[in-house]
Design a protein around this nucleic acid. Structure first.
Lengths: 149, 149
DNA sequence: CGAAATCGTAACTAATTAAGTTACATGAAA
DNA sequence: TTTCATGTAACTTAATTAGTTACGATTTCG
C-alpha cells in the first residue's frame, strides 16, 4: 500500500465487502486486495469500526462486514473515520506574536474552513453504493465485450 | 520550518517583501522570518521566481523582490508555483486490471478534478494584497491599543 | 475441553520524504 | 579584487508511515 492511498485502498476494501454482504472477509483476504498485510488493514480500518461503518468479529468464521447498507455510507464519513485531512497545508503558528504570521494564518484558516465545508458536502453526496454501481457497470461491460470477441 | 507549512511560510515571506517594495531582502533575512536557513528559502521560492512572482538578484545589494504588484499575485498562483497539491490523497493504480480499483479511482478522480477546480477558483480570488491589508489592520489595532494602554 | 481461527494491539524495523546543512561555483557591486 | 549574494548539488538528520513480529483475547468447531 503506497503512501497517501489510505482512502482509495479503504474504498477498494469496502467495495469488496459490499459485494459479499453476507460473507465476513478476513483481514488476510482484505490485505491481499490492496497488497499489504493483515495488521495494516486492521489498523487502517479500526476507525471505520468505531464509526459503525464496518463491524468485526473474532474467531472461526469471523472477519469484517459492512455495518450498514452501502447507500448509507458516504465518502465524507469514510474519510473522517480514517482521520484523513482534506487539505494538506499546515497553519500552526511558528512565531507566536508575529502579526504577519497572524494575518497569514487568519486568511488561510478562513479559506480552509470554507473549503473543507465545500469538500465535505461534495463527499457526503457520494456513497459506497455509487462505487459498487460503477464497479458493476465496468464488470458488465467486460462481460459483453468478452462475448463479442 | 515545519512540515506542510511551505504555503504559510511562503506567504509570510511574501508579505514582508510586499511591505518593503523598494528594498531587496536577502535569503538570510527571509530565513529568519520563518526560522529556517537561507538555502531552504531559496529552494522553496525558486518556483516563484520561475513564475514571475518574485525576482532575485545576486551580488552586493542583491536579494529578493516581488515581481509585480501584490494585487496581481493570487494564492492560487503561489500554491501552483510551490508545486503544492490541494488534495492530499493518491489515486495511483496499484493493481492494474482490477475493476474494483478502476471504479474507485474513477470516482475519486472525478471528485478530485471538480474539487481542485473549486479550490483553485477560491484561491485565485485571494491576493497578496488581501494579506498585507489584513496585516496592516492588525498592526494599526496594536498601535491603537498601545496608545490606549 | 482443546485446537484452530481470527481480531486487537503493542513494539519494533524499514522505507520514504522533507528539512537542514555544507560546500562551492557564479555573478554583481563597491 | 574583494565582498556579498544567489544557484545548486550532495549529504545528513528528523519525522512520518508502512510493514512486521509477537502475543493476548475471543469465538467456533470437533
Amino acid at each position: 500500500m503506497k503512501r497517501n492511498s489510505r482512502l482509495s485502498s479503504t474504498l477498494h476494501i469496502l467495495v469488496h465487502m459490499a459485494e459479499k454482504p453476507e460473507h465476513a472477509l478476513t483481514s488476510e483476504q482484505l490485505a491481499t486486495f490492496i497488497h499489504t498485510n493483515p495488521v495494516v488493514v486492521r489498523r487502517t480500518i479500526a476507525g471505520l469500526r468505531d464509526a459503525g461503518i464496518v463491524t468485526s468479529s473474532r474467531g472461526h468464521g469471523g472477519g469484517w462486514l459492512l455495518g450498514r447498507a452501502p447507500e448509507n455510507i458516504s465518502l465524507a464519513e469514510i474519510g473522517a473515520a480514517l482521520g484523513e485531512t482534506l487539505l494538506p497545508f499546515s497553519t500552526e503558528p511558528e512565531s507566536p506574536g508575529c502579526l504577519v504570521e497572524q494575518a497569514v494564518i487568519a486568511v488561510l484558516d478562513d479559506f480552509r474552513i470554507a473549503a473543507e465545508k465545500l469538500l465535505a458536502e461534495k463527499l457526503s453526496r457520494i456513497t459506497l453504493a455509487d462505487l459498487t454501481a460503477d464497479f458493476r457497470r465496468r464488470y458488465d461491460l467486460i462481460g459483453v465485450s468478452s462475448h463479442a470477441v
